[in-house]
């Protein structure tokens, strides 16, 4: 469904992505792992054009785009098929939880308000926030805010959801509630691309793993294979330090 080839990106003198390939099939839950600064987040942001890649091609739903020069209209069209969950939630502070979810429907997609509210409520129910419709972001805990973020992503009925370190800004005791929601989505067959440091999620929920280092993909394959039978020495070392840490 999503095939990206040879994505390159640099910020001034610093090269962040050195030709990354990525393949996601419908229903895949792909975890992108790797040390800090390896380009994981930039990769995700390039896929949704929050950053403009220097080069590479993106095939989405059979359409091919040159990532370096895509028209604004194509970007807007592509974004309507995808959704993004941010590390810092990025909820609209002047909107309630429900308004956060419906904003993209009513304003971005010109959907009827009553219908949008219905979809919004259902999305919030799904992430376990039925009693928080009218709360403003500052009245919610981090975990609740991130679940609103996920509901906002779900409501637009996307073909794929990109998650950028969805639990990294959360207190340890709040991570669970967010992961539970993500796991539930995975089980329902949602296509997800997740930049994460949560090894349990990568091992138990995702079916594919991409390991990145220094702007390159070191390994891309099934998550079972990755954890049980890593080929690269570097990945063995990475997994080793995690075990040591845990």
């Amino acid at each position: 469904m999503v095939q990206a080839r040879n994505i390159t990106k640099s910020f001034q003198a610093q090269i962040v992505l050195r030709g990354v390939d990525l393949f996601v099939e419908k229903g895949d839950v792909v975890a992108i792992l790797g040390p800090s600064g390896s380009g994981k987040t930039t990769l995700l942001r390039c896929l949704n054009f929050l950053e403009t890649a220097d080069g590479g091609t993106l095939e989405f739903d059979g359409e091919t785009f040159q990532m370096g020069h895509v028209s604004k209209r194509d970007i807007a069209r592509l974004r309507k098929k995808t959704a993004f969950v941010f590390q810092n939630y990025n909820l609209f502070s002047n909107k309630t939880a429900l308004q956060n979810v419906t904003e993209g429907l009513v304003i971005g997609r010109k959907m009827d308000k009553v219908k949008a509210m219905e979809i919004g409520r259902r999305a919030l129910d799904k992430v376990g926030l039925s009693d928080r419709y009218d709360y403003y972001p500052h009245q919610l805990s981090g975990g609740q805010q991130q679940r609103v973020g996920i509901a906002r992503a779900l409501a637009t009925d996307p073909e794929i959801i990109y998650f950028d370190e969805p639990t990294s800004a959360l207190d340890p005791e709040l991570i669970g509630e967010v992961l539970t929601v993500m796991k539930q989505l995975a089980e329902e067959g949602m296509t997800m691309l997740v930049v994460t440091h949560e090894m349990s999620f990568a091992r138990n929920v995702s079916n594919k793993v991409i390991f990145m280092e220094d702007g390159r993909v070191l390994e891309q394959g099934s998550s079972k294979e990755f954890f049980e039978n890593p080929k690269e020495e570097r990945i063995k070392a990475f997994l080793q330090t995690l075990r040591g840490g845990a």
């Binding site: 929050l50 959704a83 993004f84 941010f86 990025n90 909820l91 904003e103 993209g104 971005g108 992503a153």
Partner: peptide
């Protein structure tokens, strides 16, 4: 106003 909210707006399909 945090820039992330603008990005979030783009991502939910707003202009």
């Amino acid at each position: 106003v945090p820039k992330g909210q603008i990005e979030a707006g783009y991502c939910v399909g707003m202009s």
